[in-house]
Structures are given as structure tokens and as C-alpha cells.
Amino acid sequence: MTTVTSPLAGRVIGLAAVPDPVFSGAMVGPGTAIDPVLEPTVAVAPVDGIVVSLHPHAFVVVDGEGHGVLTHLGIDTVQLGGEGFEVLINKGDTVRRGDPVVRWDPAAVVAAGKSPVCPVVALEATAESLVDVSADVDVKSGDTLFSWT
């Protein structure tokens, strides 16, 4: 079983509340989403593993069981061209849960007219394979979001 932890502090709102049909419809995969605290922060790795995809606005870490976890920092933030995001590691790096990945400012995302909501998605999973999915709670970076069986 893989425990997926929060990459940042905020309020867990669930995927259905994400203002993007690809995420809210769980087309990318099941999971949850966080409405982050609106202050400069660092998004951290939600699992131990290897960074297989890395962009200023999103990253994927694959754990030892082959479970890929996508963290997407805000909605439509790819349109910002990396502005306001600082990548702190490299694609291919091995990370431990809680290691810094991207420094960003959710308030700057809001100021740019984008949603700061952050989906955390279990790639290539089924909804039934996730247990104890958090919803409607405040989390700190590192708090458990869900377990993947």
C-alpha cells in the first residue's frame, strides 16, 4: 500500500470541486485536491520515488510499487510559462516524501487570473483502489491525503 501525503498546506476540497472538467471528472485518475494557503510556499514530494515528469506547474513521482502520483499546482497554470514557479530538483531525481520540488506563490497564480487549486492524482488507478481519501479538512504539508492499495 502506498500512502500519499499532501504536497502543501491548505483545505482538501476533493476532485469534484476542481474548476477543470479533466480533473473534476477524474479523467486523469482518482485522487483529491487542495485549495492552498495563499502565501509563498514549496510543494513537496507526496511519496518516496523517482521524479518521472517535471514542469514548473506540475510533477509526477513514481514510487517503488510503480504508483505514479501527479501534483498539479493550480489550474491552467501551464499558461503562465513557468512565471512565479521555481523548480528545485531535476527530472530523474530520487526523492523522499516531503522533499522540496517546486517553490511557488498561490496568491500570484490568483493575481494572474488562474485557480490555485492543486489536484493530487493517482495515475492509472481506479477509484476503488484508493482508501481513506481526505475531504473537507485542513491539511499541513505531509499530512495523509489517501492510501493506494
Rank of each mutant, 00 (worst) to 15 (best):
N90H: 10
E65N: 15
S53C: 08
V44I: 14
V44E: 08
E128A: 15
S53D: 09
T2S: 15
R103P: 01
V137M: 05
V110D: 00
E65R: 15
G68F: 03
G49F: 06
F146Y: 15
P21K: 11
V51R: 09
V60Q: 04
T149I: 13
F23M: 10
V4P: 08
L70W: 02
G81K: 07
V110S: 01
A16N: 11
V101E: 01
A108M: 11
P56S: 05
L73W: 07
A127D: 12
S53Q: 14
T77N: 06
H72S: 04
S129M: 13
A45Y: 00
A111N: 03
I50F: 01
V60H: 03
I75S: 08
E39R: 15
V4Q: 13
V121K: 04
V101D: 00
G98W: 01
L130K: 13
A33C: 12
A43K: 03
G142V: 04
V110K: 04
G84S: 05
H57K: 06
V4L: 11
A112D: 05
A125K: 12
A127H: 09
P56K: 07
F146A: 09
G98D: 03
F59P: 00
S24D: 06
R96T: 13
H57L: 01
P36I: 07
G29D: 00
V117H: 11
V110H: 01
M1K: 14
H55L: 11
T5F: 10
E39D: 14
G142R: 08
V139R: 13
F59H: 04
V42G: 02
H55F: 14
T77Y: 07
P56E: 02
V22P: 06
A33K: 14
P119A: 11
T41P: 00
